[in-house]
């Protein structure tokens, strides 16, 4: 599964490099994956093989048309037509990391209960870069389930400062 996602990510990255917009495509692909993660109905619709591939591609184009680059729309459409919409999150993650590696940076998936301001995102990227010792790109995911605070995942390392985590620790102490 991971190898297949990596292969698709390599393909997406290759196309994006060719188009000269890997950074944009990776970011848009990451956002699309997060949007798909937050909508069960959309995820089930795009994964339903009973629906013709052309119809599913049409849905993708309708949703992304005008909101994402043509390359991103084409890549998502291709992945959905191939029946790999369930791997879209992994492919996007791989694409983001490929993009970061190309620029000598790491990717931190940051989950927050509320959207971060640009200032907060910049300060957080700086703090994570200082903590890990190399440059970090921050990809923010709004996740109300963590209640408050931030959870940052860089590779295998997780820095959990969420209210949910604090409550869990409090529950464990009882």
């Amino acid at each position: 599964m991971a190898d297949r996602s990596a292969s698709y990510a390599d393909a997406v990255a290759a196309v994006a490099r060719a188009e000269g917009n890997l950074d944009l495509v990776a970011d848009e692909l990451f956002r699309v994956a997060r949007a798909l993660e937050g909508s069960d109905e959309l995820r089930m619709t795009l994964s339903d093989r009973q629906i013709p591939a052309a119809r599913r591609q049409q849905i993708v184009e309708d949703l992304l048309g005008g909101h994402a680059s043509d390359t991103t729309t084409a890549m998502v459409s291709m992945i959905v037509a191939a029946g790999r919409s369930s791997d879209l999150a992994g492919i996007a993650q791989e694409a983001v990391e490929i993009n970061a590696r190309d620029r000598g940076r790491s990717v931190a998936e940051v989950r927050s209960a509320v959207a971060l301001t640009d200032d907060q995102a910049e300060r957080l990227a700086a703090a994570l870069s200082a903590a890990t010792g190399h440059q970090v790109d921050v990809k923010v995911v709004v996740d109300p389930s963590i209640m408050g605070g931030v959870v940052a995942t860089i590779g295998d390392e997780v820095i959990d400062g969420s209210v949910r985590h604090r409550l869990s620790q409090l529950r464990d102490t009882f």
Binding site: L116, Q120, A127, L128, A130, G149, V150, I159, G161
Partner: peptide
């Protein structure tokens, strides 16, 4: 809370 997190990571 976010600021506190950034400060603690920093």
């Amino acid at each position: 809370l976010v600021d506190d997190y950034i400060a603690s990571v920093g």
